[in-house]
Design a protein around this nucleic acid. Structure first.
Lengths: 223, 223
DNA sequence: ATAGAATCTTGACAATGGCAACATTACACG
DNA sequence: CGTGTAATGTTGCCATTGTCAAGATTCTAT
């Protein structure tokens, strides 16, 4: 008898299983469950402490079960990173919905969403931007990351009153500046630097960041 | 007989040792050798692929020898990160020596050095800024990182013609902006983003980056 | 010269990723 | 409806890794 029922034998002792035992041999939607469990594993243990067996345990399946859905740990982490990029983009759009509709305000809002996500999901953020464990060439990850990049170019173009054109060097340069500034803020904050900013209370932090972004991301006046 | 001499017994066969066999039981300066081996291990395998046994092998000692010099892997990685911060600061100063002496040029030079280091030692850079494996509270690491931070504040103060005062919020804000921009550029480049920049040939990249930094880091004209 | 400390090796153990063999269930097709 | 084949899970196994403990070798202070 497998430990699927509520009680099973351990040697000669009857042992009660944990609360998460399922009644069926098949899980139902293990793939989704693994992604969810993987997220928690990431948040609680960080990338370095991430273990496939730990994820399996969280999902309530045996240690090798995940391999039927993700070829190896790398593939699971790649999927988690791709999912991360989707939520990341969603966080930016959520901010934009609540902001003024002019180009600069929209760009600033996007930046705030970027930072929201980084602070809210620091481990996933690192997985997306600062880890070699995912396969950054994998089509699913490339697609998700590209969508976010496209949104950036589009926002910068709007803020500067130009056409969306990913080939235009001047525009790309402005996008680079904006991206680097926002990414730098997000990355430094998630790694506990920028103690000054992190020390502020929520509303103050919000105000300071918004002001900083608005000043820095504005198109240059003249020359 | 231990495999310290050129030949030793493996079962009943005489085996020739690899070229890196030492003649003495004691290594001499294993601590330094481990740091050097650790750097290579990092560059070649990345943080994720870093293994203590791999480092031991590179240094030509048994798998447990490192533990007499570094309590565990974390302590070794912490030392490598601290050493990284020293080289990081040195890279910035090296650029400053070759630059004009006005405040802005010095700040730009420092930023270029920051990026030099990140591109030259991407794995160490990640270890310093984007990894939980080192103990970022350890005194040696804190000291090395603080020295680099102090230099930043000092450079920003000079560029803005103010006193060096790590408590001054206006100054700290300017430092934050500068740091975030440069760090963002460095981090995004080391993770293979900013393809536009990475695609440029060396002198073009140099020129573009310097121009970008000079424009962005200049003190605001008036208001 | 020698005892104790420092350094290095060997051997062990637990945790992990991944493979292979097998058990159970789902499903397509007769 | 059956049935056999694919999909999904489990168990057992192996290699690698970090860490500890015990022993071997060398250094050093007295």
């Amino acid at each position: 008898m497998l430990p699927l029922s509520r009680f099973y034998l351990d040697g000669d002792k009857i042992v009660k299983s944990g609360p998460k035992v399922r009644d069926t041999y098949h899980h139902g939607d293990l793939r989704q469950a693994l992604l969810a469990a993987g997220e928690r594993e990431l948040e609680e243990n960080g990338i370095e402490g991430f273990s496939l067996r730990g994820v399996a345990k969280r999902a309530g399946v045996s240690h090798a079960a995940p391999l039927h859905h993700f070829k190896d740990t790398r593939v699971l982490l790649t999927a988690l990173a791709a999912q991360g990029f989707e939520r990341f983009l969603a966080a930016q759009k959520a901010r934009q919905l609540k902001a003024e509709t002019d180009g600069l305000s929209q760009l600033v809002a996007s930046g705030m969403g970027y930072i929201d996500f980084a602070l809210g999901h620091p481990a996933v953020f690192r997985l997306m931007f600062s880890s070699d464990r995912p396969d950054h060439e994998a089509p699913n990850l490339v697609a998700a990351a590209s969508a976010a990049y496209g949104q950036l170019i589009s926002d910068v173009a709007r803020a500067h009153g130009r056409e969306h054109d990913a080939q235009n060097p001047a525009l790309v340069t402005e996008a680079m500046k904006a991206w680097a500034l926002v990414h730098g803020l997000a990355d430094l904050m998630t790694s506990g630097r920028l103690k000054y900013l992190l020390g502020l209370k929520k509303t103050e932090k919000e105000r300071t960041l918004a002001k900083l972004l608005r000043e820095s991301l504005a198109a240059p006046q003249r020359r």
